[in-house]
Amino acid sequence: MNSNDSAPVGHGPLPARPDLPDLVAAHERGPYDAVEARWQQLVLTWQWHRERHELRAPGRPYPGIVPLLKAARAEPTLRQLYPFTSHHTLCFSSRTTYPWVLLAPAVDPLIDGRFRIRQPRSSTVIGYADSPEEAIALVTAHLPAGLGPAVGPVNSTG
């Protein structure tokens, strides 16, 4: 066992790493599969991080990224975009590969349990929400018209 995988004394073992979907294979199958695999991967990974945090730092708050991901994944318009996180911020791309195309607002889960919704690629705050569902409703209210499913990489040859 790796020393990084041991829990503090008296707290029992840390949860095992989750089995994640094969993102490379999903990308090879196309944008729809890449988006679906990425949603699965993010939820599983952040659940694992939260469980580890709860064992290592009981009583210390953990940002509400897991319920936020679940609420966003349940919203059909957002579910078709490619999700990614950066420093707990949930972002949505219209492309499944870098460089990301960010047209949807981003959501920051705050340590106090609320959520901050920001304009894409900006620090400009659109608003705050008290629940993940309210945050996602605010995101969808600020989506550009005609935003469709994420697409794969742009072919640079032609």
Results as ranks from 00 to 15, higher is better:
residue 121 R to H: 15
residue 66 V to W: 12
residue 105 P to G: 07
residue 129 A to G: 07
residue 104 A to Y: 10
residue 40 Q to F: 12
residue 122 S to M: 00
residue 125 V to W: 06
residue 70 K to I: 00
residue 120 P to C: 07
residue 69 L to M: 00
residue 44 L to E: 05
residue 97 T to V: 01
residue 39 W to F: 06
residue 32 Y to G: 14
residue 53 H to P: 11
residue 130 D to S: 07
residue 55 L to F: 12
residue 112 D to L: 06
residue 58 P to T: 10
residue 95 R to Q: 04
residue 37 A to Q: 02
residue 44 L to W: 03
residue 101 V to T: 11
residue 86 S to F: 11
residue 84 F to T: 09
residue 84 F to P: 10
residue 117 I to F: 14
residue 53 H to Q: 11
residue 50 R to D: 15
residue 35 V to P: 06
residue 43 V to I: 03
residue 87 H to N: 13
residue 82 Y to Q: 12
residue 122 S to C: 03
residue 38 R to N: 10
residue 55 L to H: 12
residue 40 Q to W: 11
residue 111 I to K: 11
residue 32 Y to D: 15
residue 38 R to Y: 14
residue 31 P to Y: 08
residue 60 R to F: 13
residue 66 V to L: 09
residue 94 S to A: 02
residue 103 L to E: 13
residue 43 V to G: 13
residue 53 H to R: 04
residue 56 R to P: 14
residue 51 E to T: 09
residue 114 R to L: 02
residue 95 R to W: 07
residue 32 Y to C: 05
residue 79 R to K: 11
residue 113 G to Y: 04
residue 95 R to L: 02
residue 85 T to G: 09
residue 78 L to W: 06
residue 117 I to W: 15
residue 124 T to P: 15
residue 73 R to W: 05
residue 102 L to P: 08
residue 103 L to G: 12
residue 77 T to P: 15
residue 48 W to E: 10
residue 75 E to S: 02
residue 35 V to R: 05
residue 81 L to G: 10
residue 75 E to A: 05
residue 39 W to A: 07
residue 111 I to M: 10
residue 42 L to Y: 13
residue 66 V to M: 10
residue 114 R to D: 15
residue 110 L to W: 06
residue 99 P to C: 00
residue 101 V to F: 09
residue 65 I to S: 12
residue 92 F to I: 00
residue 57 A to M: 07
residue 127 G to D: 01
residue 97 T to A: 06
residue 65 I to V: 02
residue 46 W to M: 04
residue 70 K to P: 09
residue 73 R to P: 14
residue 60 R to T: 02
residue 112 D to Q: 09
residue 56 R to Q: 13
residue 50 R to E: 15
residue 118 R to F: 14
residue 31 P to I: 08
residue 94 S to T: 01
residue 64 G to D: 02
residue 104 A to M: 02
residue 104 A to F: 05
residue 44 L to I: 08
residue 85 T to V: 04
residue 123 S to I: 05
residue 96 T to H: 08
residue 79 R to V: 00
residue 97 T to C: 01
residue 109 P to F: 07
residue 99 P to E: 07
residue 53 H to S: 09
residue 73 R to C: 12
residue 43 V to S: 12
residue 51 E to I: 13
residue 67 P to E: 11
residue 44 L to F: 04
residue 93 S to M: 04
residue 60 R to W: 11
residue 41 Q to F: 12
residue 111 I to F: 10
residue 65 I to D: 10
residue 40 Q to V: 03
residue 117 I to Q: 06
residue 55 L to T: 00
residue 110 L to D: 14
residue 100 W to R: 01
residue 93 S to C: 04
residue 107 V to N: 03
residue 49 H to A: 03
residue 67 P to I: 08
residue 92 F to Y: 09
residue 106 A to C: 05
residue 71 A to K: 03
residue 88 H to I: 02
